[in-house]
Simulated assay, not measured.
Amino acid sequence: MILEVTILDVKPNMTVEFETAFKTASAIISSRPGYISHELQRCIETTNRYILLVRWHSLEDHTVGFRQSPDYQKWRSLLHHFYDPFPTVEHYELIV
């Protein structure tokens, strides 16, 4: 299993719209092959910051299967305009 970790800084005063759009986007990502689960959490100290955790069966399920799919273009159009700066995505594997 691979854990995708992304810190999302949403433009100020757009958090309500972002959360609404994310609910729609959740259906897109959860339908992808190799998807296991995801969660979105809001930061308490910085209220326009979120962390997105997505579990995939393999790295390629995310980087190729999702990112190179037409579904990713839908995801992108729903969410990418909310971010400033654009987030960095990292992938982790369980050690212990």
Rank of each mutant, 00 (worst) to 15 (best):
L78S: 03
I29G: 01
S77H: 13
L53F: 03
Q68G: 15
P12Y: 03
E17Y: 05
T47I: 08
H80E: 14
Y83F: 15
Y50W: 07
Y50R: 10
I7Q: 09
R32G: 00
L79Q: 05
E4L: 14
S31R: 10
V16N: 08
N13K: 14
Y35N: 00
N13Q: 14
E60W: 07
E60K: 15
F82I: 09
E4S: 15
H91V: 04
Q41D: 00
W75R: 03
S30N: 12
L3P: 02
V64R: 10
K11N: 07
V96H: 10
S37T: 11
Y83Q: 04
P85F: 14
H81D: 00
P85H: 05
C43L: 02
P85Y: 11
D71V: 13
D84M: 09
L52M: 05
R42L: 04
V10Q: 12
T24L: 15
K74P: 01
T15I: 14
K74C: 05
Y72S: 03
L78R: 01
F86H: 10
I44A: 10
T24M: 09
L40E: 01
D61P: 08
N13Y: 15
R42N: 10
L8A: 02
L3V: 05
T20W: 02
F66W: 14
R49P: 00
P85N: 07
R42Y: 09
L3D: 02
R42T: 12
F86R: 01
T15A: 07
T15Q: 14
Y50K: 13
A21Q: 12
R32E: 11
V89G: 01
T47P: 15
K74A: 11
L53R: 15
R76G: 00
